[in-house]
Design a protein around this nucleic acid. Structure first.
Ligand code: MN
Ligand code: MN
Ligand code: ZN
Ligand code: ZN
Lengths: 143, 143
DNA sequence: AAATAATTTGCAACATTGTTGCAATAAAGT
DNA sequence: ACTTTATTGCAACAATGTTGCAAATTATTT
């Protein structure tokens, strides 16, 4: 289900990040490409069968975060959701500022890549670093 | 450290919600009043000593959420943060829409009660229900 | 193409966090 | 004071996340 083009794209990402190309990393990136929404840790175990260890998944996601390949999306439950960064984000320099959407019907969380976050006027004394926006409602597929 | 006035306020809240007035519930609400930021589950065990069971804390927080006494604040780690609702929110009808601020220096999360969430223009096909905004940066106390 | 060096993985063991059923307890209503 | 109802604590369990270390894999050098 993964095209040759995608395989090359994935290998390119890993090379750019100075990461060795391993089965786990390729597989996890394939799952990101395949999925249309954000993924949480448990999804990888489900989607990939138990082809790799839980610990490896934790470490791989952390590595991808460090390298700016993926970003986290805030939630109000204890899960953490991850999605691919479409802009070319570097380590410690994430510039992929878009709104996230959580569908109350199907449960999926998606990146609204073209919906940029609004500017917020903070009270005096506060210095802004980053703004996270998560909108919930009903997505276009569930309408 | 809790004034008589606060004790009455807490009892009033519980009565309004048709909840019996118990030590655990009073204590947890006192901790909310005392704290200037949002609290996560672990905080209650630390702040209250182990005066009540962990399970009771989980159940109490869930009850308060159901009754609209408190609300959750999204995070990108596995914790869930809770804060008191200042508006009079009802069950399943939360109308306390403000921006939240997470300080990168001191780690506290606060409700910016007077900073309302901006309107977001979603792509076609999406229906909006709720908007969560979490700004990170440096708070006025850490400046 | 081997040999070596560096990195990554899986396992085990553990720590932390969250859930459920049920009996003991406490609060509210009479 | 008694009865009814709701809440709590305990135990046992499930799920999630972390760490050290040896084995396996990948990249680099010869
Ligand atoms: Mn995103
Ligand atoms: Mn708030
Ligand atoms: Zn949907
Ligand atoms: Zn601060």
């Amino acid at each position: 289900m993964t095209t040759q083009k995608q395989k090359e794209q994935i290998a390119g990402w890993l090379r750019t990040c100075n990461l060795s190309i391993t089965d786990t990393r390729v597989k996890i990136l394939e799952l990101f490409l395949k999925s249309n929404g954000a993924l949480e840790h448990g999804d990888f175990e489900k989607l990939a069968g138990k082809s790799f260890d839980r610990v490896t998944v934790y470490r791989t996601l952390q590595t991808f975060l460090d390298k700016g390949l993926i970003h986290k999306i805030p939630t109000t439950d204890t899960s953490v959701r991850y999605a691919i960064c479409k802009s070319d984000c570097k380590e410690h320099e994430h510039h992929d500022h878009h709104v996230h959407f959580k569908c109350d019907a199907c449960g999926t969380t998606t990146c609204l890549d073209d919906t940029s976050v609004p500017s917020i006027a903070l009270p005096r004394g506060y210095a802004m670093n980053n703004v996270e926006v998560v909108v919930s409602g009903v997505c276009k597929d569930c309408k």
